[in-house]
Design a protein around this nucleic acid. Sequence first.
DNA 1: CAACCTGTTCGCCA
DNA 2: ATGGCGAACAGGTT
Length: 276
Amino acid sequence: MPELAEVEWYRKQWDAGLGQRVESVRLHGHKRLFRGTNTRTLRQCLSGQILLSSAARGKRMLFRFSAGNPGKSGARGNVRSWLGIHLGMTGALRVESANFTGDKHDHLILHQAKRTLVLRDPRQFGRVQFRHGVGEPDWWRTGVPDIMEDMFDRPWQDRFLQRHAKAAIKAVLLMQHGFPGIGNWMADEILWRAKILPARPVCSLGEFERSMLFRQTKFVVRRSLETLGEDYSDPPRGWLIHERWKRGGKCPKHGIGLSRATVGGRTTAWCSKCQR
DNA sequence: CAACCTGTTCGCCA
DNA sequence: ATGGCGAACAGGTT
């Protein structure tokens, strides 16, 4: 499910546990979701620690934990636990009551005194990472600006486009090293608003189209964060997403049937009248 | 029963 | 060395 705006909403679900201690940890340690992660360390380190804060970058989240009484024991006061979560295709974060136990798809469960923080992911295309130490984990640094940051500007976008000149623009919008957080529906939304056919090779885009692409990318991200990302409310009326998966879905602007095909390896919807 | 799915990664090929 | 593409991953839903 989750693209950048949904990820932001899921991240905030665990805010209910901020400042509270993790009493115990339950996890399905042998599962694919934890590939490359030492789950015994995760369970041992996180038990007894306090959830301090969280952040999201694109589709990735980072949760910061530490022991209580920071600073009391000198340098060791700076030791933190860092929990990285990617929700993949079917992941979700939610909060349950304190006595929640979960089923086979609830892979990571953090029990607090008054509630339980749950990560569920049936398909396990998501991922959990963990680090215990001083300073942010290496895997959290990406070198890629978030789309809403000033660093994400025209020169940066155009440099990335240039590196993938022969690929379909739809495929390039899905690349997390260029457009972090954009997924299938947001890519279609952006291209519809920018009036660009998804299968167009990047090198065929003119200056005006690249500037439309840039503006609509910023716009779709901003408005998605203000709706879905804020309270999971619907994106604005008139957006393509409302028609995208409907049988007989129509272009919100022209009312003609949407076209569909696989582009960049994903099902793609567009309006053949709007987009050229 | 078959096809499809809001994501990433790997191996193969140009 | 870099970039593009299709398959694989695992399970639910239509």
